[in-house]
Write a protein that binds this DNA or RNA. Structure first.
Length: 419
RNA sequence: GUGGGUGUAGCUCAAUUGGCGGAGCACUGGAUUGUGGUUCCAGUGGUUGUGGGUUCGAGUCCCAUCACCCACCCCA
């Protein structure tokens, strides 16, 4: 048989038992971040296109050519969200959440959409888990959030990841740094790769990220942002580093790290992992002190991060062995084999009671006892309860433990207690 | 958007120079009346991704298209 419909390019189904792993990740996020004060927020998956244009900025391909945008029946220009932060800032301003006591902390889960060419760890619809915190300018909150992210990753058992941090300055010092950088690269312009020549115009910071050997060599002596930061930004960054050191959080200072989104200021960070292919970022984030006011709210410092669910799940699957990978892959505790219509009716009644007690129960509706036994075994059931003429007559049910082979008989009223 | 690779059963893969599309696993059923796993037997399952072309003949060669994989770009 050939499927009449298949999923669109770059989108995929998450099937059980993998969904159990996803749930485990989401539960861990709530458990770890709840004590930090983060509560779930559920913004819509679509917004006015303008919202993303204004926040993410046009130096990023995300807005320039990767958005799923359309005109709705009311003539509005709408886009599926390519990331989560913009919506949450919009909600923060729209609902005057700045009037609630600071800090306001939010956690979110959900799909994001970017029209990209799929590859390992990258899809057109992908899920992110993210956190945002509004109203604290102190580097303490940066350290708190980074520490929280690290303990979340530890909680789900992720190994072999590295944390990188940097500061990309503020609206005072970053423009100057951009100019310095451009000035430095101007004499080398012809030697840079074509992509970097484009970056030189669009977003010179990106040249620092280039993977081409020649560009890496050229930039060896390029100015570093850390040397150009204004005093406030320097103080902020050294404050953060001091706190991370004090917490014993290990990090790697990467002076070349830049972020794709325009709204970031000062602190940026990224968690990378081997085993993800070229798309090696598991989680990333940073401070965005200007976005709230740009959206019409009061001056409000903020910081956040997002983690890629598919990437987290991929890493956990690769690293783990055995059944604990898929905690949601439960087998029935009890399989009820039936012989005849009356037995099936009885089975349904008994199953309802057991299920109400939280037991996972499957019923074999037809077929020989042998085939039902086989089915029970394949389902991974722990016990089989048999219902046939004898049981209906006597009210005593034969059962068999499929794990150790033991068997016995239990009266109907005692079944619930037995299992 | 650019480049490379791959498309055969639900899964993993065969099929000689272009010559009748198979196997293992999985699934379904059976092996003396109501007892699973091991074993044995049988069965279901395919317009070889799709559409053209070359040929007496195409899974195999050519073109197009679609999907997947990997990388660039970009990014979680």
């Amino acid at each position: 048989m050939k499927p009449r419909f298949t999923a669109l390019k770059g989108v995929s189904d998450v099937l059980p038992p993998e969904t159990g792993l996803w749930r485990k990740i989401e539960n861990a996020a709530c458990e770890v971040m709840g004590p930090y004060g983060y509560d779930e927020i559920k913004p819509p998956v679509m917004e006015q296109t303008e919202l993303f244009l204004r926040s993410i900025g046009d130096s990023s391909d995300i807005v320039a050519k990767e958005m799923y945008s359309f005109t709705d029946k009311g003539g509005r220009n709408v886009s599926l969200r390519p990331e989560g932060t913009a919506s949450i800032v919009r909600a923060y301003v729209e609902h005057n959440l700045s009037l609630r006591p600071a800090p306001q902390k939010f956690l979110y889960f959900g799909p994001m959409f970017r029209y990209e060419r799929p590859q390992k760890g990258r899809q057109r619809q992908f899920y992110q888990l993210g956190a945002e915190c509004f109203g604290v300018a102190d580097p303490g909150i940066d350290a708190e959030m980074i520490t929280m992210l690290v303990s979340f990753l530890e909680k789900i058992g992720l190994k072999g990841v590295s944390l990188e941090i940097n500061s990309i300055g503020c609206k005072e010092c970053r423009p100057a740094f951009k100019e310095n950088l451009k000035a430095f690269f101007t004499p080398h312009l012809d030697s840079l790769c074509p992509d970097c020549q484009r970056r030189y115009e669009q977003n010179p910071l990106r040249i620092l990220d280039c993977k081409v050997e020649r560009c890496i060599q050229i930039r060896q002596n390029a100015p570093l942002i850390s040397e150009t930061l204004c005093q406030d930004c320097k103080d902020h960054f050294s404050g953060l580093i001091g706190l991370l050191d004090a917490m014993g959080t290990s990090y790697f200072f990467n002076p070349h790290m830049v972020r794709g989104l325009d709204y970031y200021t000062r602190t940026v960070f990224e968690v990378k992992s081997e085993g993800l292919g070229a798309q090696n970022a598991v989680a990333a984030g940073g401070r965005y002190d200007l976005l709230v006011s740009e959206f019409g709210g009061p001056d409000t410092p903020a910081i956040g991060f997002a983690a890629g669910m598919e990437r987290l799940a991929m890493l956990l699957k690769e690293a783990a062995t055995g059944e604990e990978v898929f905690p949601g892959a439960a087998s029935p505790a009890i399989f009820i084999a039936t012989l005849g219509k009356e037995a099936a009716t009885e089975a349904l009644k008994i199953a309802s009671r057991l299920r109400a007690a939280g037991k996972r129960v499957e019923i074999g509706w037809s077929g020989s006892l042998k085939s039902q036994m086989r089915k029970a075994d394949k389902s991974g059931a722990g016990h089989v309860v048999m219902i046939g003429e004898d049981e209906l007559k006597t009210g005593k049910f034969k059962w068999k433990n499929l794990k150790d082979g033991s068997s016995g008989e239990t009266a109907k009223e005692e079944l619930l207690a037995k299992f």
